Computed example of a mutant assay.
Amino acid sequence: MLLETHRLVLRRFRAEDAAPFAAYRSDPVVARYQGWTAPVPLDEAVRTVRGYAGGSPEEPGWFQYAVELKDDRCLIGDVGVCLHENLMQAEIGFTLAGDRQGHGYAAEAVRAVLGELFERRGLHRVSAECDERNIRSARLLLRLGFTREGLRREATWIKGEWTDDLLFGLLAAEWRPSHGA
Rank of each mutant, 00 (worst) to 15 (best):
M1R: 15
T5H: 05
T5A: 04
H6G: 13
V9R: 14
L10M: 10
F13N: 06
F13Y: 09
R14H: 12
R14E: 09
A15E: 05
E16Q: 08
A18K: 00
A19K: 00
A19W: 01
A19H: 01
Y24R: 08
D27C: 11
P28G: 06
Q34M: 13
A38T: 10
A38M: 02
V40A: 03
L42H: 04
E44V: 00
V46I: 06
V46H: 08
R47F: 04
T48F: 02
R50V: 00
G51F: 02
Y52M: 00
G55V: 02
S56Y: 03
S56M: 02
E58D: 07
G61T: 00
G61A: 01
W62S: 04
F63C: 01
V67C: 07
E68N: 11
L69K: 13
D72A: 09
R73K: 13
L75T: 06
L83F: 11
H84C: 03
E91V: 01
I92S: 04
G93A: 09
G93F: 06
F94V: 05
F94L: 04
L96H: 15
G98A: 05
R100F: 13
R100S: 11
R100I: 04
Q101G: 06
G102W: 08
A107I: 12
E108C: 15
E108M: 13
V110I: 06
R111G: 15
A112F: 15
A112I: 14
V113H: 14
V113K: 10
V113M: 13
G115I: 11
G115E: 12
E116W: 11
F118I: 13
E119S: 07
R120V: 02
G122V: 00
S127D: 03
S127F: 06
C130F: 12
D131T: 09
D131G: 10
D131L: 07
I135R: 08
S137A: 14
T147E: 15
R148C: 15
E149A: 07
R152Q: 11
E161I: 05
W162G: 03
L166A: 05
G169L: 03
L171C: 08
L171N: 07
A173D: 11
E174H: 12
E174D: 12
W175R: 12
